[in-house]
């Protein structure tokens, strides 16, 4: 008896009957395999993926926290070095979730091993979920590593555990989706660094990682409210310190709407085969 006929991963419908490729159990196995591959991939190159954000964060704490921080004093009643912690952790989550999806998926396109997935019976939504889970895994792993670094420099406090994990998780999902969209459109290696360099980094730096928008002039306060990353960073800061420039519901609203738009847009790209199929 063949493996095929014994397998419960396949649908065994005959000709003429509506048939699906994978059973729910098969789909779960496929998801686990893709997630494991992604985790092993960034784990194998931890010197490139996990270590640099830890060093970068340590430098931020040394320069901005220890050297410049005492001259700034407190923001919203919190010492500046402690005020920095949520923004720096979330900045790592954002950049690493994005970087994992964009580099892994574009690398797979470039080396053509994305075809391993495209010829398989995995539905498009499952491929997206698998890659996003990989991005989330790297984003949260690096977020945790950066938190450990932060412990060396500042006192950590948690105002709301639920919001802490909720915002971190949704942020990593959103930016992993964003990285995947970038990778689908990218045709050269240059294309995968354009968005992080010219869009993501400026929006993150101007999104309240290092300051409260209350310190800005009225015009720039209003302008900052058009930056979605401001809501995300402030939501995470609320979860850690209990202070925020925006209400927490607006953080979840931005994240939820962003995730839905990005997911369905990406699904459309996959279904049409844009950037993937000839």
């Amino acid at each position: 008896m063949s493996i095929r006929s014994q397998s419960d991963a396949f649908d065994h419908q005959g000709p003429g009957e509506k048939a699906v490729g994978l059973t729910p159990r098969g789909a779960w196995n496929a998801f686990l395999m893709l997630l494991t591959r992604e985790i092993l991939r960034f784990g194998r190159i931890w010197v490139q993926t996990v270590l640099p954000p830890m060093i970068m964060t340590a430098l931020y704490f040394v320069v901005f926290g220890h050297l410049i921080g005492p001259r700034i004093g407190e923001i919203d009643g919190v010492p500046y070095i402690q005020y920095l912690v949520p923004g720096l952790i979330l900045m790592s989550v954002i950049t690493q979730s994005y970087a994992n999806s964009v580099s892994s998926f574009f690398g797979a396109k470039f080396a053509r091993h994305v075809e391993e997935l495209l010829v398989s019976p995995m539905p498009n939504w499952l491929i997206i979920v698998g890659y996003v889970a990989g991005g989330v895994a790297r984003g949260l792993t690096v977020g945790a590593a950066v938190t450990i670094v932060a412990l060396l420099f500042a006192e950590l406090s948690v105002h709301s555990v639920l919001n802490l994990f909720g915002v971190a998780l949704m942020t990593s999902i959103l930016f992993a989706l964003g990285g995947l969209i970038n990778a689908v459109y990218a045709t050269h290696f240059d294309h995968i660094s354009i968005v992080p360099t010219f869009v993501l980094t400026p929006l993150t730096y101007l999104g309240g990682v290092f300051y409260s928008i209350n310190m800005l002039s009225e015009f720039w306060q209003q302008a900052s409210l058009y930056n979605p990353i401001l809501y995300i960073i402030n939501g995470f800061r609320y979860a850690m310190l209990g202070i925020s420039d925006v209400p927490i519901w607006s953080t979840y609203a931005i994240l939820a709407v962003g995730i839905l738009i990005a997911y369905f847009y990406l699904l459309r790209l996959f279904n049409k085969g844009i950037g993937l199929r000839g």
């Binding site: 397998s7 991963a9 496929a30 686990l32 395999m33 494991t36």
Partner: peptide
């Protein structure tokens, strides 16, 4: 499918290339 050009991840161990593909077809590890 066995394509004309090499289209597997060259930076993965040999057995992982095959095992991963099995997973994408719904097999347990």
């Amino acid at each position: 499918v066995v394509p004309q050009e090499f289209n597997f991840n060259q930076f993965e161990p040999v057995e992982e290339v095959v095992i991963n593909q099995g997973g994408f077809y719904g097999m347990t590890r």
